[in-house]
Amino acid sequence: MPNAPEPRTPRRVLVDPHGPVLVEGPVEVETPDGIRRSDRFMVALCTCRRSRTLPWCDTSHRPRERRR
C-alpha cells in the first residue's frame, strides 16, 4: 500500500511500585496546564505527587535521613 501508515514501535513503560513510572522517550505528557515535552531517552513520571517539577519526578518520594 503506498499510503499505509508506518507501524509504530511500542513504548516501553517500567512501573516501580516504590517510585516513578519510567517511560522510554521522547515523550509528550498532556496535563491540565498544557503539553509538556521531553526529548530524553528515558523520563521518570511522578506518581507520588510530591515532585516540585510535575509531571517529572524529582526523587521526592525517596525516604530522607534526618541530619542532627
Rank of each mutant, 00 (worst) to 15 (best):
N3Y: 13
N3G: 12
N3P: 07
N3I: 10
N3E: 14
N3H: 15
A4Q: 13
A4V: 13
A4F: 11
P5F: 06
P5H: 05
P7N: 07
P7W: 04
P7Q: 08
R8Y: 05
R8P: 02
R8E: 12
R8V: 13
T9W: 03
T9K: 15
P10W: 06
P10C: 10
P10E: 12
P10N: 10
P10S: 14
P10M: 10
P10F: 07
P10T: 13
R11C: 00
R11I: 03
R11E: 03
R12I: 14
R12Q: 15
R12Y: 05
V13D: 02
L14D: 09
V15M: 06
V15R: 10
V15S: 08
D16E: 11
D16K: 10
D16C: 08
D16A: 12
P17L: 01
P17R: 11
P17K: 06
H18K: 15
H18C: 06
G19Q: 04
G19F: 01
G19W: 00
G19Y: 02
P20N: 09
P20M: 05
P20H: 08
P20Y: 04
V21D: 03
V21W: 06
V21R: 15
V21G: 03
V21L: 14
V21K: 11
L22R: 11
L22F: 13
V23S: 04
V23L: 03
E24A: 12
E24Q: 14
G25K: 06
G25A: 07
P26F: 03
V27M: 00
E28N: 08
V29M: 00
V29A: 06
V29Q: 03
V29K: 04
E30K: 10
T31Q: 09
P32D: 13
P32V: 00
P32M: 02
D33G: 15
D33K: 11
D33N: 11
D33R: 11
G34D: 08
G34N: 08
I35E: 10
I35V: 15
R36S: 08
R36H: 13
R36A: 13
R37A: 12
R37I: 05
R37D: 01
S38A: 11
S38F: 09
D39I: 03
D39N: 10
R40E: 15
R40Y: 08
R40W: 10
M42Q: 12
M42F: 10
M42V: 15
V43W: 03
V43E: 07
V43C: 04
V43A: 05
V43G: 04
A44L: 02
A44E: 07
A44T: 08
A44V: 05
L45D: 02
L45K: 02
C46Y: 00
C46G: 01
C46Q: 01
C46F: 00
C46V: 00
T47P: 01
T47I: 06
T47L: 08
T47E: 09
C48A: 05
C48M: 01
R49M: 11
R50Q: 14
